[in-house]
Amino acid sequence: MKNSQKSSRGKTKIIFAVGFVLLAVSAVLGITLGSTPLSFEEIKTAFIEGFDTTAGGKIFLYVRLPRTLAAIVCGGALAVSGAVIQGVLANKLASPSIIGVNSGAGLAVTLCTALGVYGGWKQSLFAFLGAFAVVMLISVSARKWGASRGTVILIGVAANSLLGAISDAIVTFFPEVGVMSNDFKIGEFSAVTYEKLLPAAILIMVTITLLITLTNELDVLTFGEDNAKGLGMNTAVMRTIFLLLSAMLAGCAVSLAGLVSFVGLIVPHAVRRIAGSKSSRLIPLCALFGGAFVCLCDTAARTFFAPYEIPVGIIMSVFGAPFFVFILIKGKGGHSRD
């Protein structure tokens, strides 16, 4: 028994190490690859002589670095948000993009832009409020009507459609808004600036750190309403806190990169298959693998057809969908009855 415990801990350490290495490799690739490749020598020179003195230095500081960081924090945020929403709604089909949370944030960003607010804290706040409103609506209606897991997804699909329609209507009436362009709908990082990145990244880092301290609460919530209450948890308060935090993550990610879909669904599933459902492993691993996944996809999106660039959402779907089906089919036993 002790041996199996030790081997389980050893396996967890290896998975974490792989996650860190993958994240580091994806960051290096994200920074060095692109329509104009950057060498380590150029980056080193920029650090010594100043970033504004060479073209390579400028590309590094103003293009690649913010973009790579944005892809990492955005991917981590959406994957963690997906894992939390799935846990709280006890529904593994749920994810920020599927149940309309991203659309809520997208509508809020569109409104925000129509009102003349571009980037920065205010946009992140608007996105968070939009995401939170939708996730609370879904959660409350699911509980009030005792909706089944399938119904929750259908409510989300309806919410997605409605919110998308409202966003489109706003763009129709205010064409100058333009944020609901195809790029925004599919998700992409080409327009990331430090002004947009910093507030969102700080909020995302703080929120993920907070969630890592709440992993036991997230586990207990999966015992079901009454058993969690029996263990002394104020389930209504905890559920609201979790949905608030997951909306914060989804909202920040959308304000940065638009409606990036899929990552909130496939990364938590993949991590569960590899490392199990224990939240203290699931949350940090989702942050690592989600960040690495989106960063690699973004690098692919701007290098595969360089100098042309395609939205990262397309790459994620092309590679993510078959991979997702693969892990579902190849998944180990023990998780098959959920």
Binding site: D219, F223, G224, D226, N227, G230, G276, S277, K278
Partner: peptide
């Protein structure tokens, strides 16, 4: 301690 009716089956050891 309370063990409710119709307990869920959490995916953990």
């Amino acid at each position: 301690a309370y063990l409710a009716q119709g307990k869920s089956v959490p995916d953990m050891t």
